[in-house]
């Protein structure tokens, strides 16, 4: 029988972790093993309501479980946020090309995340940790709106303890309990402990944040081909057929969702 490209496989919610008021991490157990490369995305079905695209945030080496960190933002995610352990969802994919890990060997990797944009970067970090000897240095700079909006609060300190890893976080708006940096994520991109000659930047966050981080990295001397961006579009089919996620000559679903800035910098509307 031919494979039906539109059909999801069944997955059961095994756990739900509240990250922030609007963000939850769901642990899914697919009925059959489901593997993905870091940076690839899936279409998640909420039965009866529809699909939405998400990039898994879990370790890509683990095929029997899949974690997805999801912000309540639209119709599908609102229903999903009311779902509980034991509920059934559907999964299609994985789609897209993901992060070009081969190109990062021997590099100083600067990872810049904004808000829930840290979710795909978490899976990327796990992929790097798994092969840590291949990379020179991992520098994570993470910004969120307030200290209440920080995701993976318990996990980030553990990452900090790893060798070759340097982490700094910031919040746009401080509060009495917050002892760290206050300011946009671009304010913690100065004096980075990296060698520009072998540095790459990997950015994921809201479009406005990616725009200013990209401008900052260019100003610091990063080359356009060494800046990797996760482009947000409303991917529907995941296979370059439905037409929703066109970005210039590309479809974000099949050619991305991660793009080198070099390949998209001349397009007129990439930050919209």
């Amino acid at each position: 029988m031919k494979k039906n490209i539109y059909q999801p496989i069944e997955a059961v919610i095994e756990d739900v972790r509240q990250e922030t008021a609007a963000i939850k991490t769901f642990v899914f157990k697919p009925k059959s093993p489901f593997s993905f490369r870091t940076g690839q995305f899936i279409e998640l079905t909420v039965p009866g309501f529809g699909e939405a695209p998400f990039t898994p945030s879990s370790d890509p080496a683990i095929a029997e479980k899949l974690e997805v960190t999801i912000m309540k933002a639209g119709k599908v995610t609102a229903v999903l946020h009311n779902m509980k352990k034991g509920d059934v969802v559907g999964i299609r994919g994985p789609y897209g090309k993901g992060y070009p890990l081969d190109k990062f060997k021997g590099k100083d990797i600067l990872i810049v995340g904004g808000g829930v944009g840290l979710a795909p970067l978490r899976s990327f970090l796990y992929a790097l940790f798994a092969d840590i000897d291949k990379y020179n240095k991992i520098i994570l700079r993470y910004g969120s709106r307030t200290s209440n909006d920080i995701v993976y609060k318990d996990i980030i300190p553990e990452w900090s303890k790893k060798k070759k890893v340097d982490i700094m976080t910031t919040v746009d708006m401080g509060d009495p309990a917050w002892k760290g940096n206050v300011g946009l994520v671009t304010t913690i991109l100065n004096d980075l402990p990296l060698d520009l000659k072998k540095a790459v930047g990997v950015v994921c966050g809201p479009p406005i944040m990616m725009k200013f981080v990209t401008l900052k990295l260019l100003e610091l001397g990063f080359k356009p081909q060494d800046i990797y961006l996760s482009m947000e579009k409303n991917m529907s089919c995941g296979l370059g057929k439905c037409g929703h996620c066109r970005l210039g000559k590309f479809y974000v679903c099949k050619d991305g969702p991660v793009f080198a800035y070099e390949d998209i910098k001349n397009m007129h509307d990439i930050w919209d």
Partner: peptide
């Protein structure tokens, strides 16, 4: 050629529908 995938309940289950967009 653009289309949208959406989901509808049918009987006790659900079906996926492709509509021109």
């Amino acid at each position: 050629h653009c289309f949208l995938l959406s989901d509808e309940p049918i009987g006790t289950g659900n079906q996926r529908v492709r509509s021109w967009d």
